[in-house]
Design a protein around this nucleic acid. Structure first.
Lengths: 132, 132
DNA sequence: ACAAAAGATACTAATATGGTATCATTACCT
DNA sequence: AGGTAATGATACCATATTAGTATCTTTTGT
């Protein structure tokens, strides 16, 4: 059980690194610094570009830079891009847990936990990670 | 992204049902009530039995009952049995996120969130689900 | 024209999840 | 004793998700 998958992780690392650079950063440089597989990272960056987190420049001396200020990029956004909706309390049956009973108690309780967790994740921006 | 997988879910439903019965409950009865696949549920119950959550009786008129009081069985225990250690903040590289920086800030922040979530999950017992 | 970058897209590999199938063992009942 | 109805153990299979590769196209600065 992991909250964050590899593409989110690599994506965040890349964004953090790019955020600290003044210049446009190439995949080649990121691969060197982060030590992650190049084609995989390319895919991730292309996605972040399509999602308007990064801005890309093609051609020689091209690369990536942030399209948004670091303080306005939140970890949960990146998670949602790569991992979809974050739902902790999904029920598998249409029925309630503990059948013959009213509403699903577990679900409600987990919902509270989820809400807390998401609220906290929603506060973490890239700027705070880079500063930290 | 789900916090609870199917075997945990089915396991919890089964435990809740068994908790409400005074008698020993067979898989056949549980399958009827819960409407889940029989061989899968059997595997789940066998596991819960090995893990000393349930007590099993072989032979005719055998089945399962709780080995522990409902108030002493916690949702997080069942999650750990089927889903292993619940780690939200796993890092994929040995290095820190946002390399060239000190400690991994993201990791620390997620650790806090994880601790909160686990603390809350740790409080939910079967008795509260059945009562609810 | 060339080289070095990203864009797009299709494919593959590994792992986790959600199951089935089967045979052995136990215990009650007649 | 023997049959039947239950669980125990274990090996296998199917599907989905995650992680990654491969390849070809497009763009752009020199």
């Amino acid at each position: 059980m992991k909250l964050i998958t590899r593409n989110t992780d690599y994506g965040l690392r890349a964004i953090c690194y790019i955020a600290k650079q003044k210049k446009v950063v190439t995949v080649t440089e990121l691969v060197k610094v982060l030590g992650v597989p190049r084609p995989f990272l390319r895919k991730i960056l292309q996605r972040l570009s399509r999602e308007n987190i990064l801005e890309s420049y093609k051609g020689q001396f091209g690369g990536f830079k942030l399209r948004i200020l670091a303080k306005n990029i939140f970890v949960i956004q990146i998670m949602r891009i790569f991992q979809g909706k974050i739902v902790l309390n999904g029920c598998f049956l249409k029925k309630d847990i503990c059948p013959n009973r009213g509403k699903c108690v577990l679900r409600k309780k987990i919902q509270v936990i989820e809400n807390n967790a998401l609220a906290q994740l929603g506060k973490i921006n890239i700027a705070s990670l880079v500063r930290g």
